[in-house]
Design a protein around this nucleic acid. Structure first.
Length: 766
DNA sequence: CGTACTAGTCTTTTT
DNA sequence: GACTAGTACG
């Protein structure tokens, strides 16, 4: 029997309501995943519901994985028959079985945003559309919005009669959709939209899934868009056993099509719905919750709800004010170090949250300078990196040659003398004679005007053919290694003299180890399945929480996570809320930012610091901003410090910013000088996350990736023999105590005399 | 065909 | 300020 005793009354009420529509309004930190998992367990073990009749849908792979794990743990038999998956992977699985009904092939590929851009670029060119007036991004955005609202090209065209701009976009949309279909490709929005279309056009298919999924649960329901709402509505239509869980106050993905009305109007769609509010928060102390409540209460479009806790008052919210963003970053890193060194918090319990990724740079530099291990989440997705996309493009071509985007990407990488001119000739020939791009390549010798390029193209086609024929004999890993070998990809990188070549090679190695992991985990590790998995994962899914490091990330990325100590950086009008929202006529933009602030505040368990910098560089310009209105919405009584009263606008000499920067730069230099001499080897166990841009060498050289600085005195003394990972054996010449660390001078037998910091050098006494 | 420079762009981004 | 895409040249 399942054990519901550990739930509070509200939670239990939600878990027991198995039949009919249920809306669970789950405040931040109110234990909603617990409720969902117990609910599933109750359904199976007490109500005799078959596990395969249960569908639990989430947004991220990470959330799905966590739920899967908890379901497995709590339920003995049949747990793996419960379908726990993301919207997209659920729909992909359905489409792989039935999409032929819609005229696609079941081995379709999935285009990411980069691929979409490439397609769009081609279309704008082909249609002779002025790409200044119609930017590809705008077009893609409009199309995406349309798809999220389930508007197909035909309907779109109907709706926009009279509006010249939209009429043009309607043509673009039509062409875009046609191109994707010819390439047997779907974009992310298609995955949902086409599933809905499938269900609407083929009621017998829908009914099949309705019978299969008699009990449906949706997590983070506030983030669903219209298409996802419709998908769920259809699936639940027959049995009406639909339980949605969410928090309208945490709806922060409007810009991606999320429709907050889905949760706010749930009761209109399902008048008989049971509504349960979970307001007891198990995460934060009272001051933090009070601050969160007082901010969010300024929103008008919401369901009223007030979080409470029995954890006690805790610390007041800290407010800190700085002259500029450098000081802010320096303070945060220094304060984090203080808490870590005093034992109050572990590095992994601390997080720094910011509105935009651009803010991460200064913070990162500060953490390097101060010597605290950190991890940056986000930035460029691992699978979006050039070198990774190149390799994946090879795999895609080998897997599905119909995909011209992938073929064009790699046909001249590494350079093999097939340039744009030749490709255009092939394309023209193909479109004139009705061949697909790859078909055209296969008969390059028949295409007039290609000249020498024809032989080269032939070579390329043959190479792909050979890869394809060997695929069954040597597996995915072997295939990738063969590709790297045959094409000379790595050699070209190594010889390119680009300073990030090493990082790129490391990324490729990382990809290979991901492939090995994948092959170990899946008995039938087909190329199609691997590519699909890769297309549907994001960075946030890969946060390694076992590593004890301070986390730096955007507030968006922090949703669903919690930390003992949280810093929110850049709490300024113009940054957070962003200027776009401030100047927008539509007040809902500010409300969205406010929800974002609410999400940030409620990540903190015990300690929250809000930071404000009077001056900061934004898009290359120095700006002077007022403290965030969200800070001013928190009553003084909840904070240890108040924002200074607004006097005259702070005007500073423009130089002061540069001065400050120089000062800090100098500081950074002295601290890291001994380390920047050489880059450490990239050892296989050094499983770095994704390697960012320019700061890598700084990062790596400070030893940040390799663990915590030692707090105490080193266990060796002057005259002792020590061993260094890279420099080998040597004798300690000198040990200097510095305010933050011990500076050690060692004479290495092979590498000569080096000065290094004890915390990073990891010298072992021998 | 490949490279080097210049102009434009710039929130957030579960999939 | 930083990155990318597009273009002019060698």
């Amino acid at each position: 029997m399942s054990n519901l005793d550990t739930l509070n009354n509200r939670q239990r009420e939600a878990a027991l309501a198995v039949e009919g529509p249920v809306l669970i309004l789950a405040g931040a930190g109110s234990g909603k995943t617990r409720v969902l998992v117990h609910r599933i367990s109750y359904m199976i073990e007490d109500c005799g519901i078959q596990p395969w009749n249960i569908l639990a849908i989430t947004f991220t792979n990470k959330a799905a994985g966590e739920m899967r794990e908890r379901v497995d743990r709590i339920i003995g038999n049949g747990a793996d028959s419960v379908w726990v998956a993301t919207f997209h992977s659920t729909c992909v699985r359905i489409l792989r079985r039935h999409i032929d009904l819609l005229g696609y092939d079941t081995d379709f590929t999935i285009y990411d945003t980069d691929d979409q851009k490439t397609v769009m670029k081609g279309i704008l060119k082909r249609l002779n559309i002025d790409s200044k007036q119609f930017k590809e991004k705008t077009c893609l955005n409009t199309i995406s919005n349309a798809k999220n609202e389930l508007i197909d090209p035909v309907e779109f065209a109907k709706n926009c009669v009279g509006d010249y701009k939209l009429e043009r976009i309607a043509v673009v949309y039509t062409e875009y959709q046609k191109t994707l279909k010819e390439s047997n490709a779907l974009d992310f929005d298609d995955i949902i939209m086409l599933t809905v279309r499938l269900f609407k056009e083929y009621p017998q298919v829908l009914e099949n899934y309705q019978n299969r999924f008699r009990y449906i649960m949706v997590d983070e329901y506030q983030d669903t868009n219209t298409a996802q709402f419709e998908l769920i509505r259809l699936l639940a239509a027959k049995y009406q056993n639909l339980c949605v869980v969410g928090d309208d106050d945490q709806s922060i993905y409007k810009f991606r099509g999320a429709n907050i009305s889905n949760i706010l109007d749930f009761e209109k769609e399902y008048p008989q719905a049971l509504v349960v509010k979970l307001e007891q928060n198990y995460r934060s102390t009272q001051y933090i919750l009070d601050a969160a409540n007082s901010v969010i209460s300024n929103n008008s479009y919401r369901k009223s709800k007030s979080l409470w806790t029995d954890r006690g008052d805790g610390n007041k919210v800290h407010f800190r004010q700085f002259e500029n963003a450098f000081e802010e970053a320096d303070y945060i890193a220094g304060d984090a170090r203080k808490s870590i060194n005093s034992g109050e918090f572990e590095a992994g319990d601390c997080a720094v949250l910011y509105r935009t990724n651009a803010q991460s740079r200064l913070l990162e530099e500060a953490f390097v300078r101060i010597g605290i291990p950190y991890n940056i989440v986000g930035g460029v997705n691992f699978y979006s990196r050039k070198e990774i996309k190149d390799i994946l493009a090879y795999l895609k071509v080998i897997n599905n040659a119909v995909d011209p985007i992938a073929v064009k990407r790699i046909i001249n990488i590494p350079k093999r003398g097939i340039g744009v001119a030749s490709i255009n000739k092939v394309e023209d020939y193909c479109s004139a004679n009705g061949f697909s791009f790859f078909e055209g390549l296969k008969m390059a010798d028949e295409i007039p005007g290609l000249g020498k390029a024809a032989v080269k193209i032939e070579g390329f086609v043959n190479m792909i053919r050979v890869f394809r024929s060997k695929i069954d004999t040597y597996g995915l890993k072997g295939l990738v290694e063969d590709i790297l070998e045959t094409t000379g990809y790595i050699e070209e990188l190594r010889e390119s003299e680009e300073d990030d070549a090493e990082d790129r090679i490391a990324n490729i190695e990382e990809l290979i180890s991901k492939i090995v992991d994948y092959e170990d985990d899946h008995e039938e590790a087909s190329l199609t399945a691997f590519l699909e998995e890769v297309a549907l994962v994001s960075d946030i899914d890969n946060i390694e929480d076992e590593k004890n490091r301070v986390m730096l990330m955007t507030v968006h990325a922090a949703k669903g996570l919690e930390f003992g100590k949280v810093y929110m950086a850049g709490m300024e009008d113009g940054v957070f809320p962003g200027s776009m929202a401030i100047y927008d006529e539509d007040p809902s933009e500010i409300e969205e930012e406010r929800r974002l602030a609410y999400v940030g505040i409620t990540r903190a368990k015990d300690d929250l610091t809000l930071c404000y910098a009077k001056q900061r560089m934004l898009r290359g310009e120095t700006q002077y901003n007022a403290p965030s209105r969200f800070i001013r919405e928190i009553p003084d009584a909840y904070m240890d410090n108040k924002p200074a009263k607004r006097k005259e606008p702070v005007v500073m000499q423009d130089d002061s910013f540069r001065e400050a920067k120089k000062m800090f730069a100098a500081k950074a230099y002295t601290t890291s000088t001994p380390m920047t001499l050489k880059r450490p080897n990239t050892t296989p166990e050094d499983k770095r996350p994704f390697i960012g841009q320019g700061i890598n060498s700084l990062r790596a050289s400070a030893g940040i990736q390799k663990g915590m600085p030692a707090k105490g005195k080193p266990d060796y003394e002057v005259g002792d023999r020590v061993r260094h990972m890279k420099f080998g054996d040597g004798t300690v010449i000198n040990i200097d105590k510095e305010p933050t660390d011990y500076k050690v001078t060692v004479d290495f037998e092979k590498s000569g005399r080096k000065v290094m910091y004890a915390a990073f050098a990891k010298l072992r006494k021998i």
